[in-house]
Amino acid sequence: MNDNVGNDSFDEAAQDDALEEALRRAAAILDPVPAELRHLAVEAYALHSLRDLDARLAELTFDSLVDALPVRGADVPRMLTFSTGDLTVDIEVTAEGLTGQVLPPQPARIEILGTAQPTATGTVTADEMGRFLCDLLLTGPFALRLRTDEEVVVTEWLRV
């Protein structure tokens, strides 16, 4: 608050507050959170409670969209890297699907999770070199759950 507020300023500040409140009511009527989205957010808790307790979270450490020089063109693949400890997953998302590699190279079973049914979607296997390929088109938010011989790793949710 300013020190030199007179009655007029008080009045104006009160009008500001009233207008903000009127906008808040308008937003609640004209542009509320869609009910199905609220529902999905509630459901997202299953990710936490169902998550394998020993699953490690691999955070997004590289995203070509923000970390690389901008490249023009419609078919530029989105390159992503998720890391946790010494395990890294590189992914390339194109219009054809998704390719990737687990590093250090090792076989893994990889589930592709979507928000519609967060417990299961596609499954793909990484070969001895850690490479995997999947023609599943990623639409909407997704995460990968990897099971290597030693551990379970889940990537951060991301939308591509």
């Binding site: 959170v33 869609p34 989205l37 957010a41 997202a44 998550r51 967060p118 938010p141 995460a143 939308r159």
Partner: peptide, 13 residues
């Protein structure tokens, strides 16, 4: 819709 979901799913994680 997708951004909203991403935010909440990541928050759960």
């Amino acid at each position: 819709h997708e951004v909203y979901q991403t935010a909440w799913f990541r928050f759960a994680q």
